[in-house]
Amino acid sequence: MTVSTRDGRGAATQADREASATVLPVAVTENERSSSRRRKGFKLRFKQDRSLLAMSVPVIVLLVIFAYVPMLGNVVAFQNYSPFVGIAESPFVGFSNFARLLEDPEFWHAVGNTLVITAFQLVFFFPLPIFLAILLNSLLRPGLRTLIQAVVYLPHFFSWVIIVTVFQQILGGAGLISQWLRQAGAEPLDIMTNPDTFILLLTSQTIWRDAGWGIVVFLAALSAVDPSQYEAAAVDGASGWRRIWHVTLPALRPTIILLLILRLGDSLSVGFEQLLLQREAVGAHAAEVLDTFVYFSGVVSGDFSYGAAAGLLKGIISLILVLAANKVAHMFGEAGVYQK
């Protein structure tokens, strides 16, 4: 029945079309026109936008080769990869590399170190730029503010090799302060080689390098605050501290949340280069984090599949973390890293 009805309709349409070569049935033409517009539209749009598309091609090619192919390359995490036979020939072993990871105390040690360092930096590093930015913002001379901002932002552009070298020269066993201590007859410092205080060293290096960056970001947010808000608060009898609490901090809230999200998404990557550079000095135990675990177990020891499994696990958890943090930010009514 249905078939015949459909046939009948189709026939009717066909008949209509043929019958009214000049007076076209409205509905049919509408349909046809829109579908042909879509078909022609694609060709037309391609023709129109082809130079725009061509411009994106170099980036697409680079990203496919150096971002997407390696993403697929993570299949080695499910293999017993051997460089001699290649990915295609290496046997698949399912999740056994991951199972091995979960039973490896070294891996858990690296995870623990990573999380402790992240938490430590969140507590001792993160609030500092906020405090300093508020302080700088209270300076009345814009010239002085710009000058200090320029000075403290500078180390952000230094490589980790330079940062660690600077710390070694000042705080190392043969560095400037040890040199003074020795001249005064005291013991030289061992901060650079002491695994017990290593986390303090890491955090102070991060502060030295990145506090200025944070200050710049927060100051920019503060410069957007309408001064009349402060005036109104003052007229209402708010003291300086209360104005900071009720005007300045709320103005910084979106930036604080944004940076927290970025930090949380990155919480599994703590200063890879920074740690790699100081591993010899403080020993592998204190300086082992997830990234160094991947590097040493994978590339250095040649157990590529094992390293890749750890790396993939880290990548996926990081992705989940950043998505989750962003979701939380949306729940608090903040913009977060991305919309939609």
Binding site: I65, F66, A67, V69, P70, M71, L72, G73, N74, V76, A77, Y81, P83, I87, D291, V294, Y295, G298, V299, F304, G307, A308, G311, L312, K314, G315, I316, S318, L319
Partner: peptide
């Protein structure tokens, strides 16, 4: 999401 050290090295 970045691929990670090992696949990059292999590539």
């Amino acid at each position: 999401f970045s691929a990670g050290i090992i696949p990059m090295y292999l590539l």
